[in-house]
């Protein structure tokens, strides 16, 4: 494991912890899209099915359990915790995320490395993760109110994706035969979505500064 991968995983974990902290302590999920959170829960549930079939390391198994547990907890809080649910922007969070699920499933059935149950679901999870942030970005554009914690959550997620790309570049040059087109292309698409968002976030922040 290289430093980029470790830093990426830690950034990813912090992003989820920031979100859980916000929801658990402030009892508010204002500005958070439950659709994006449901997509992440599906991503982890389908990608980590191999938790039962292949063991990599205690670190990997532990992190998989962290991501599964945290994503399902966040969905549970937003859907079923009364105080938290009251703060949910239901009218604004209208992205049809099941359309994304269906499209990614079809794509995984068409484009994969091996046509096996676990492999197709693993590929599906990569496609879905690439676009899972879309409902969250749409919600932010609609409400136009981004609090510090939600901003930090998205910023940390973007950082995690950027670090994973550095990790792949590092592995490509240090490990023979490390070539993973599907992982790389979906990872790149996902990172570009964040970069696009940050670009416009930065522009509006700069304009606000000017107004002041």
């Amino acid at each position: 494991m290289n430093i980029f991968r470790l830093a990426g995983d830690m950034t990813h974990m912090f992003s989820v912890l920031v979100l859980l902290l916000k929801i658990h302590t402030i009892k508010s999920c204002a500005g958070v899209s439950v659709k994006t959170q449901e997509l992440y829960a599906i991503v982890f549930a389908t990608r980590y099915l191999d938790i039962f079939t292949s063991f990599v390391s205690i670190y990997n198994t532990f992190m998989k359990l962290v991501f599964l547990g945290s994503s399902f907890s966040i969905v549970w809080y937003m859907r079923y915790h009364k105080a938290v649910h009251r703060t949910y922007d239901r009218e604004q969070d209208t992205f049809r995320h099941w359309f994304l699920v269906l499209s990614c499933l079809l794509l995984a059935l068409l484009i994969h490395e091996k046509f096996t149950f676990l492999e197709v679901l693993w590929t599906f999870s990569l496609y879905l993760e690439a676009v899972a942030i879309l409902p969250q970005l749409v919600l932010l554009q609609r409400t136009r109110n981004i609090d510090n914690l939600t901003g930090q959550y998205i910023f940390l997620l973007g950082g995690y994706r950027g670090l994973y790309i550095l990790n792949w570049i590092y592995r490509y040059f240090t490990e023979p035969h490390f070539v993973h087109w599907i992982t790389w292309i979906t990872g790149l698409v996902q990172t570009l979505l964040y970069a696009d968002f940050f670009y416009y976030y930065f522009l509006s922040w700069k304009n606000n500064k000017k107004l002041n």
Binding site: D50, V56, N60, Y164, N167, E175, H177, H180, T183
Partner: peptide
Amino acid sequence: SSQSDSKDEL
């Protein structure tokens, strides 16, 4: 071997 070693990532 190509896909298996990317599965050591999260």
